[in-house]
Simulated scan of single mutants.
Amino acid sequence: MAWYRQWASFVKRLAHIVAKPMKRDSGRGGMVVHPYRGYGSQKEVFVMGRVFRQAALGRAIPRRGILRDTADVTRRIFRRGFKEAEVELNVGSNTLTLTTDRDGYFDAHLPIEHDLPIDISWHRADILVRAEGQTPVRTSAEVYVPPPEADLLVISDIDDTVMFTGVAEKLKMLYRLFVRKPHRRTAFPGVASLYQALYRGVSEKAERPILYVSRGPWAIYEMLEAFFQMNRIPVGPILFLREWGISWRKPWPRKAEDHKRDLIDRMLGLYDEMPCILIGDSGQHDPEVYTEVVKAYPGRIKAIYIRRVDKDPKRQEAIERLRDELAGTDCDLVLAADSVLMAEHAHRQGRISRRGLDAVKRDVKEHLAEEEAEQAGISQ
């Protein structure tokens, strides 16, 4: 019966995570606002979010427990975006007013005319949403602005770069995420310590901006937040997900490579003097997209780290040709089977500390030892 208890625990925890955004209305329904973490510089900041219209919770539903979570999951499935709601955004003494689009999203681009404090990296964006016939809603979001001494920008893919996300493995991925021990979940070995090392830099006090990209829809935002927290991965803005809403005019979500390239362009423009490292995987279009970025921004991209997630020799040859194309630039393309190779290169470039490199090696070694012990137990 142990397997039954584990799966019951999995279902309960998964339902609680999926239902979590619905708790904010205390069951009242109506208009609700879900902001996402923002990002920016001392010149401008960006904050995204979505305004929903959702049903109220029945009085017979208890306030806690699996029945409440199930009811909230149902409410989440049937909620709809609230179009043309007025959104007022305040960051420090800077203010912007805009309206939501037909799907309820707002994407605020706020110029900074009044300086923000430079002794903190996370700032508060106060949000007020109004709509006819609705009670105004106040909420807030965190906005990341790197400190003046930040010396490196890191832009990383998530899917099959930070976490295992093979389509055939979705259910297993969720099981590992919510049932198994934190260090045995869905992150690649050494990822947490690698990203911590990149975040802290050689001084181990750098607080560099690490921005994450996913091909998934915004609906999985809370799942990704839980994943990052459980796996001790530095929490940056999980910024760049796609809306997968299907309509007759747009029957398919936007291509992942176009989505990613536009966002990288935006980031390099925002942090216009900061060198950058790009991290991705071999399974999609990351090497090709990143190579084009290197050519478009001479001298800006200092390294491309590509996690090898398949054993197709033709794919490896294609990536090696891209590496040869970059031979005369300031950028090294590193095709790596594990996090150690990435960390060793970053250390040689003077991007991470010796302690950071040692932490990555230790984590990968411990993971391999655990896998060997697990396999030995299965074979006995």
Rank of each mutant, 00 (worst) to 15 (best):
residue 298 P to V: 02
residue 278 L to I: 06
residue 337 A to N: 08
residue 264 I to D: 09
residue 324 D to N: 08
residue 306 I to S: 05
residue 343 A to L: 06
residue 324 D to F: 06
residue 298 P to Y: 00
residue 331 C to A: 13
residue 321 R to Y: 03
residue 341 L to T: 14
residue 320 E to I: 01
residue 360 V to G: 12
residue 291 T to H: 13
residue 288 E to H: 02
residue 265 D to S: 01
residue 291 T to Q: 07
residue 306 I to P: 03
residue 280 G to E: 07
residue 345 H to L: 06
residue 353 S to E: 11
residue 291 T to E: 11
residue 343 A to I: 11
residue 300 R to E: 06
residue 319 I to F: 03
residue 310 D to K: 09
residue 359 A to M: 05
residue 369 A to C: 01
residue 322 L to W: 07
residue 336 A to Y: 05
residue 261 R to A: 00
residue 269 G to I: 00
residue 357 L to E: 06
residue 324 D to L: 11
residue 318 A to D: 05
residue 323 R to V: 03
residue 318 A to L: 07
residue 306 I to F: 03
residue 289 V to N: 05
residue 269 G to K: 02
residue 276 C to V: 14
residue 333 L to I: 10
residue 313 P to C: 07
residue 312 D to P: 02
residue 287 P to S: 11
residue 296 A to H: 02
residue 357 L to T: 13
residue 273 E to R: 02
residue 266 R to F: 04
residue 270 L to D: 00
residue 284 Q to T: 04
residue 317 E to L: 01
residue 286 D to Y: 05
residue 371 E to S: 02
residue 301 I to D: 05
residue 342 M to Q: 13
residue 308 R to C: 06
residue 305 Y to G: 14
residue 277 I to L: 15
residue 354 R to C: 08
residue 334 V to S: 04
residue 337 A to P: 07
residue 336 A to M: 14
residue 335 L to K: 01
residue 277 I to S: 00
residue 312 D to F: 01
residue 340 V to W: 09
